[in-house]
Design a protein around this nucleic acid. Sequence first.
DNA 1: GCGACATTGTTTTTT
DNA 2: ACAATGTCGC
Length: 744
Amino acid sequence: MSGCPDSVIGGAPEPENVDISHIFDPLNDAQREAVGAAPGPVLVLAGAGSGKTRVLTYRIAYLVQALEVSPLSVLAVTFTNKAANEMRRRIEEMLGFSVRGMWIGTFHGLSHRLLRSHFEAAGLPDSFEILDADDQYRLIRRALRELSLDEGYWPPRQVQWFINSHKEEGRRSAGLESAADQQQQTLLRVYAHYESICQRLGLVDFAELLLRTLELLQNNEALCETYRERFQHVLVDEFQDTNAIQYRWLKLLAAPRNQITAVGDDDQSIYGWRGARVENMDLLQQDFPGTRIVRLEQNYRSTGNILKAANTVIDQNVGRLGKNLWTNGKAGAPVQLYAALDEIDEGRFVVDHVQEWQRQGHRRDSVAILYRSNAQSRVFEELLLAASVPYRVYGGLRFFERAEIKDALAYLRLVTNRESDPSFERVVNVPPRGIGARTVEAVRQQARTEGLSLWAAARALTATDIMPGRARSALTRFIDLVDTLAADCENLELAEQTDLVIARSGLIEHYRRERGEKALTRVENLEELVSAARNFGNESELPGETDLLTEFLAHAALEAGEGQAEAWEDCVQLMSLHSAKGLEFPLVFLCGLEEGLFPHQRSLDEPGGLEEERRLCYVGMTRAMQRLVLSWAEVRRLHGREHYTSPSRFLAEMPPELIEEIRVGISGRRRSAADLARDTVSPSGPTQACADGIQLGGRVQHARFGLGTVVMVEGQGEHARVQVRFERAGSKWLVLAYANLQPA
DNA sequence: GCGACATTGTTTTTT
DNA sequence: ACAATGTCGC
């Protein structure tokens, strides 16, 4: 018990005969303080690599073993399924027994569970269906169609963004009536219509899962009380990523005991663009008086140099909660910086160094290549392929998001619920069976006027002769097919049902007939779906009446699965900076450090955008354990165009003495990249007027590119270059001596 | 209804 | 550059 901090004394009574030294001994002081804090509101500011997950799992173990809290009284919330599974695994490992009854899951998963249990009180049919982002997009297009709004003027993506951001803030269309301008009015109409479609058809999108659950608890005091009674202790991971409803969700369930432990890092808040609110970290302290704050600042991951460089970068942000990571470890190698000629050169440099690393006896999966945007992966992939280095790209389509999988799931959905309009729309003519846009439109029309589901409308139409014979018989064939599938699926195992459906719907044959590699993987994916169904054991957390098929379909929506298979092989890891959060690698390449790419151009227009990019940079740098290599390319081909770039301002923000520049011997490159970066982004300095009326911030006219604004000036005399943001042609670097710019 | 061309929009994406 | 839609002719 030597490791037990004083703070525990005077907290909850501690059973005398329980030895909990195994909980406290492996921890440092700050970790102990967090783990053993007396029940009550606790906010753990956990820096990168400071043992955040560890604290969370140890705290749960502490609650259970030392305070004899029942595992059933614990609610642990994460953002990803992976994190939830990992946490459960680690808790069980520590406790030595299964905690199946413990509620550990994602906000969405736990909400889903509550909604299934109380669908009636939540105002949902028992057959309610979860829409993923893709389903939601399609449904929004349908809503636009039904309101006769032109997709050109009302891009579905923007409407989707509009709806989701309101939902994530907890705002229903009904509460938004007082919109000022015309455009808002219309968007609101679409939102309202979308809501009514969802309500009528029992469709629940991701944000709805949360909002609906919140409302369920708010409107049913007794129910809310039951869960508050049950969840005596609430714990949250990645708290900086919570949005407005998630916060309210937590607050509601944690009350009135307020025994909540939130772990997060404001410096790693990189999902602001998706509605995440770092402010929740301040809000928590206000809303839960007496919140105990614990800072975890000792980093166990990175070398001193890496950490120092990352700290210096993040230090440029204002309004941080304040934290400075330190390490006991070695300073390690300097951070390296390579200024590449172009993205190919950058790629070659990275691949060369990966191979060298490998020759030194390291595993390939100890290397990560990180980038701001996924498009950057291509060059690396090509070069790795050419060098025969196995790699794995994260991101992209995940298993349950693939078209063929969603097709198969749509058939399965129709089998259990004929009324599912999204599924009907999806597969009514897949594989092609002669039901074209015209026929489907007729069905939609019928459904709309009669207030029926597409299925019921189709059935009604086939009973009349208002439809052309050909279309009618095709539609009848489809209806019969689904009915037959449903009849034959009765009493079959889930895997058999899946197998039957993909075979008899003609899906697998359809893809088998198609040529090309793509079709081949599709067939494989469909076969994989059958195994996935077989492996979908009954780890059921849902109420008893929910059948396995319904559960499987919900699982598919809530856990999209991995992007690529063979994770077993020893592979170099390629991923975006966002995907890298939470991971660590001995060797990290952070690539494409150029203005406009990272920080991304579009982030600069948004308030707080640059700071979020900087946090992203911090996240990237702190992934590295032993070695961090940075790179940028002077020329980058993007979207088919060549761009002359300047180094990212983040490079200029790093301490020069920790950075080792690597250059190839190219004449004309005399200045260091970091210096160059400092100059190009520095608003001060002797850059203002550079030539006859052309100056930073001034308006200029170019013969080919038109009107623009000078945003950067660099060099002098005949070497002077300016960056101009053209109204139509985008951003360009131009050599003043040749560009013939006129002041405008 | 289906295959062939044109047009479009490309930051990040836990659920 | 490139994929993923949308429009057109058979």
